[in-house]
Design a protein around this nucleic acid. Structure first.
Lengths: 215, 215
DNA sequence: GACTAATTGAAACATCTGTTTAAATTGGAA
DNA sequence: TTCCAATTTAAACAGATGTTTCAATTAGTC
């Protein structure tokens, strides 16, 4: 039996459309049309539109997070636990940014991940939470080791800011190039990664903000 | 003639619902229902759903950006042009964060702004672009003055990361508190502002990333 | 080739979508 | 009170939505 290309063609089309227009603004009919399959296929293969959304995310999420953990493992075994902050950030950031240049819908998927984080009340994110949790716990340990003196509250605020910077960068390729009149090149992925890593490392290392100043 | 509360009740309901579920996932019928008005009211008062979305944003965007510019003016006149980087960031960030605790839907609106920036292909953002542009140009000048040596490309990448950190922080109040098991208090706005300003200042000041390392 | 299960197809399901109509109601000005 | 415009109402519009049905087709196994 060909577990025929139908499923993948639906996933590819959905991934692309969702990334471009958001989850709620894409109908199953648009998906089946650009996939070139029948309307019923979605419910036959996935059960519902919501399940399709989840399937779209799941397909690439595992490889992405596996690569992150693989890099982290590599650095930790190489440096015997004394991994540089920049390397931890690199392991977190680079796989996502690099996925965005992969041939197949990687570009779309990566924008979807950004979208996922920016849409708080998203049921999809809830369902994928477990998949992220494992990764973040591993990275938390790695970060804590490179920043032993940091206060818990400072650490988590800054991780949140890092996720925000990552999300928008994955979501929106074009804005930096547009604002800078071409000085920023969204296709130079090594540059994007370098910039993100340097920015986040500086933010994580910054001294504790002094007591609230009244304004 | 009562330019009756109807318009404002629609705006309030729409603001709240859009913030919670996104633009595309909220129907005009949900809006009129929670606003307690008739279906036709939206088209009578605003013309279309899209015009309503724009009206929701416009209502609070001008006061927000006015306050940003007012703060920047205040600091520039006080310090005779030698404004500290932290103060420029404060003028950009604090009004948005503070709006998020105002009684009326400010909280919702501020999440909407975050959403706006995270949804790239958004026609609404296109229409509101002018309103943002004036503000950003003013802030660009102020930033450049505090960072005279920065490369154009570094500057715009970092501004992009700052917008990302801001967006997610405005969008999602709860995540830092949840991840940190309560160490981060999303209601302590002075703390949020301090954290964001310190993080972004460190990121902006960080040394130029060294030449690409091959991995 | 015949049987069976997996897959696809066209059509219809009820419900929801944004929008419009036209009649009813309101409230201030004359 | 009369009048007129501004506003609100209920009903309907055409089309899109996610989903289901069931017959037609496909493909692998005996």
């Amino acid at each position: 039996m060909t577990a025929s290309g139908t499923q993948e063609r639906i996933l590819d089309a959905a991934e692309c459309l969702f990334a471009e227009h958001g989850f709620g603004d894409v109908s199953v009919r648009q998906v089946v049309h650009t996939a070139g399959v029948n309307v019923a296929s979605i419910h036959y293969h996935f059960g519902s539109k919501e399940a399709l959304v989840e399937a779209v995310m799941s397909r690439r999420l595992k490889p992405l997070n596996d690569e992150r953990l693989r890099l982290l493992d590599e650095y930790e075994s190489r440096d015997e636990g004394e991994v540089a902050l920049e390397d931890v950030l690199y392991a977190l950031i680079a796989p996502a940014v690099k996925l965005s240049r992969s041939r197949k819908g990687g570009k779309s998927f990566v924008r979807l991940v950004g979208r996922l984080f920016a849409e708080p009340s998203n049921t999809v994110l809830e369902r994928l939470k477990d998949r992220f949790e494992v990764v973040f716990i591993r990275f938390h340990r790695a970060f804590k080791r490179t920043l032993p003196a940091i206060r818990k509250r400072d650490y988590f605020w800054r991780i949140h800011f890092i996720l925000g910077a990552m999300s928008l960068t994955l979501c929106d390729r074009e804005r930096p190039a547009a604002w800078s009149e071409g000085s920023c090149d969204p296709d130079d992925l090594d540059e994007v990664i370098q910039q993100l890593v340097a920015f986040c490392a500086a933010g994580l290392r910054s001294p504790v903000p002094r007591k609230k100043r009244k304004r």
